[in-house]
Amino acid sequence: MDDVTEGAQGEEESELVTIKEIEDRFDVSRQTIHKFRRRGVFPLPVPTVGSTRMRFDLKAVEEFFAANPKRPGRRTDLEGDSDTDATE
């Protein structure tokens, strides 16, 4: 019997992913994920038996990133006058 899908008819159990898998899949850093968690806006980890590694419901994580798309950071290397930035 498959451990992944067990429940009511028509109800699928979502895939669980680790922080590393979230990093790779959504191209975000571990620090960004922890920042969202500290703010209380990231989905809560799903308790799993026999593991100390946090795992998250993939569907909830996908919904979070769909509602909170990545925004590029502000480029500080373009600030100021480029003519005066040259070192002599």
Score class of each variant (00 low, 15 high):
Pro47His: 08
Thr32Asp: 06
Arg39Asn: 08
Arg75Met: 07
Pro45Asp: 05
Thr52Cys: 03
Ser14Met: 03
Phe65Trp: 07
Thr18Pro: 04
Lys35Cys: 07
Arg53Ile: 06
Gly73Tyr: 09
Thr32Gly: 05
Ser14Ile: 00
Thr76Lys: 09
Arg75Asp: 14
Gly7Glu: 13
Pro72His: 12
Arg71Asp: 06
Val4Gly: 09
Glu23Ala: 03
Ala67Cys: 04
Met54Asp: 10
Thr76Asn: 09
Asp83Leu: 06
Pro72Ser: 14
Glu13Trp: 09
Asp57Ile: 00
Gly80Ser: 04
Phe26His: 13
Phe64Tyr: 08
Val41Gln: 08
Asp24Phe: 06
Glu12Ile: 02
Val17His: 02
Ala67Lys: 14
Ile19Asn: 14
Glu62Val: 00
Glu79Cys: 05
Asp81Ser: 14
Pro72Arg: 13
Leu16Ile: 00
Gly50Lys: 05
Pro69Glu: 11
Phe36Arg: 14
Val4Glu: 15
Arg39Cys: 05
Arg30Thr: 14
Asp27Ala: 13
Gln9Asp: 08
Ile22Pro: 00
Asp77Gln: 06
Thr48Tyr: 03
Glu23Ile: 01
Glu11Lys: 15
Thr84Gln: 15
Glu88Gln: 12
Asp57His: 04
Thr84Ser: 15
Ile22Leu: 00
Val49Trp: 06
Phe64Lys: 03
Leu16Met: 02
Arg37Phe: 04
Ser29Gln: 08
Thr5Ser: 10
Arg37Ala: 10
Thr87Cys: 08
Thr76Cys: 06
Asp57Ala: 02
Val4Asn: 13
Glu6Cys: 06
Thr48Ser: 04
Ile19Pro: 04
Arg37Ser: 12
Arg39Tyr: 06
Val17Tyr: 01
Gln31Lys: 13
Thr5Asp: 13
Phe26Ser: 00
Thr5Phe: 09
Ala66His: 14
Gly40Met: 03
Phe42Ala: 00
Lys59Ile: 07
Glu6Met: 09
Glu79Gln: 13
Phe36Gln: 13
Glu88Ile: 08
Glu11Asp: 13
Ala67Trp: 02
Gly80Val: 00
Thr48Ile: 03
Leu16Cys: 01
Leu44Asn: 14
Val28Thr: 07
Gly80Tyr: 06
Ser51Gln: 03
Val41Cys: 09
Gly40Thr: 05
Glu6Tyr: 10
Ser51Trp: 02
Thr52Pro: 03
Val46Asn: 05
Phe42Ser: 00
Gln31Asn: 11
Lys35Pro: 05
Leu58Pro: 04
Glu79Met: 10
